[in-house]
Simulated assay, not measured.
Amino acid sequence: MCGRCIRRPPPFSAARSAVLYGFPVDRLITRYKSRGDLTAERACQQLLQRQVLPWPDADALCPLPAHWRRRWLRGFDQSARLTARLAKQWQRPLLPALQRQRPTPHQQGLRASQRRHNLRRAFRCVQPVTGLHLVLVDDVMTTGSSARAAARCLLDAGARRVSVWTLARTPAGR
């Protein structure tokens, strides 16, 4: 665990990422999210083909959702698309249990404390999750603030355990 997680343990039990968020993956993900470049999405899918489910006891995969306005502006929800691909590959149900109930400013460029404040009461659970081990899926983990807020919401709704899987992880200290 990183120093931040030792000082403030996250509500999720584990986190894994396919790759570090650095060149060229950072450019690829930015092209995909910011420009809707489906060629970049196909390149990301190449990374996914080699991924094995790290938690064999997982009951379902849950995307970390974007707010409906962001989905509308972007034209898609990258986490939902990523989760659908992994659910098929890992043969686990896709359970869209979370809803982002209020729009939040972009997290990019914010300090960890600002990110935490930004995400207070941002999520609500909209499906039963009692007793389930859920894998929360997102594209990038930077400080873990979004994953913490979403995992806390799922656990408060009765999930037995929440693990986090992201395509990329920002290296510590960035």
Rank of each mutant, 00 (worst) to 15 (best):
Q114T: 05
S13R: 14
D26K: 11
R111M: 09
D57V: 13
D77V: 04
D77C: 11
R42G: 06
L119Y: 08
I29W: 02
Q108Y: 00
A150L: 05
F123M: 02
G3M: 03
G109L: 08
C62W: 14
L132W: 02
T104F: 12
S145N: 10
M1D: 05
R50I: 08
I6Y: 01
R120L: 01
R69M: 00
L53E: 03
R152A: 02
I29Y: 02
L28S: 14
V129W: 11
A150M: 15
R74Q: 12
W165Q: 07
R74T: 10
R116H: 06
S146N: 05
T130G: 05
V135L: 09
T143K: 08
D57A: 12
A122N: 09
D59S: 08
P93C: 09
W68P: 10
Q91A: 06
Q49I: 06
V126I: 12
Q89S: 02
L94D: 04
T166S: 09
R71F: 00
A15S: 14
P9H: 15
P171F: 14
G109C: 12
R85S: 01
S79P: 13
V126E: 15
Q89I: 05
I29V: 15
L61T: 08
L28H: 06
V126R: 09
P10Y: 12
S146Y: 06
F12E: 04
R152F: 13
T166Y: 05
Q49V: 10
R161W: 08
Q91D: 02
R100V: 00
A159S: 12
A159C: 09
P65A: 01
D37G: 10
D156R: 06
T130C: 07
A60P: 13
L154A: 00
R169N: 03
V162N: 00
R121W: 04
P96R: 12
L155F: 15
Q99P: 08
G173E: 04
R148E: 04
V52W: 09
L47Y: 06
L98S: 15
A159F: 05
R121N: 01
P128G: 03
A147P: 11
A43H: 07
R8L: 15
V25L: 13
P103L: 01
P103D: 09
